[in-house]
Simulated assay, not measured.
Amino acid sequence: MDVLISAGIVVAALGLSAALGALLVSLILRWVEPEGYAPGVLRGGTWIGVLERLAITGAIIAGHPEAVVVVLAVKGLGRYPELRATHSAQRAKATERFIIGTLVSYLWAGLVGVLTTLVL
């Protein structure tokens, strides 16, 4: 396959992973939490999600799926203090949101990465 076509496929896959993944995670979280969520808890989640999807999809396309473990570890360790400091009444909701959002995000990024690898 021509290098420019391959590069275009990779760029499109990364864009699809990041942008459509954000929409997918948002829809799933709204479905799970129809009453809404307390603002200010787990700030920056959208940007963190975009970056994690880019990292995961890129790692899979590059042939290094083991890097997903590093992304998961960094996110978990980075969010742990914030989850612990959350008021106990909101902690369960914040933790649930963290887990659901992370799993949906990782599944989507992994799927896009694997499908892109198959196309290439």
Rank of each mutant, 00 (worst) to 15 (best):
L107I: 15
G8M: 09
A59D: 11
L111R: 06
L72A: 06
V68F: 11
L111G: 09
A89R: 15
T117C: 08
L24D: 12
R79Q: 13
I56N: 00
T57S: 12
P65F: 09
A89S: 11
S88N: 03
G110Y: 12
S105F: 15
G45A: 07
M1R: 01
G78M: 12
G8Q: 09
G8T: 11
D2C: 01
V50H: 10
L27D: 07
L72Q: 01
T117F: 13
I9N: 00
E82G: 06
V50M: 15
S88H: 08
L24R: 04
I48S: 09
L107V: 06
G113Q: 12
A109T: 13
V32P: 00
G45E: 08
A22I: 15
V41I: 10
I61K: 00
I9L: 03
T117K: 04
V70E: 15
V112K: 04
L115K: 02
A22M: 10
A19E: 13
T95F: 05
P34W: 08
V69N: 01
T57L: 07
A22F: 10
L103G: 12
A109W: 04
V68W: 06
E35A: 01
A22C: 08
I100F: 02
L23N: 14
L72C: 04
G113S: 05
E33P: 00
A55T: 04
A12T: 12
G78P: 06
A12C: 14
R97I: 14
L107H: 14
I100N: 08
L103K: 02
R91D: 08
A85G: 03
L77F: 05
I9A: 04
S105P: 03
I48K: 02
E33T: 09
G40T: 04
A85T: 06
L72R: 02
G49T: 09
T95M: 09
Y80W: 07
A22H: 02
I60L: 03
P81Q: 01
T102N: 02
A85K: 00
S26P: 01
V112N: 12
L23H: 06
V114I: 15
G76M: 10
I56Q: 02
A94I: 10
P39K: 11
I5H: 11
L14C: 10
L115H: 08
D2K: 00
E66A: 05
H64L: 15
V74P: 00
F98K: 00
L54Q: 07
V114E: 14
S6D: 15
V74M: 10
A19I: 14
L118D: 09
I61Y: 04
A19C: 07
V10F: 14
L20Q: 11
A13W: 09
G49N: 01
L120Q: 09
G49H: 02
E82Y: 11
T95Q: 03
G101Y: 06
G101F: 14
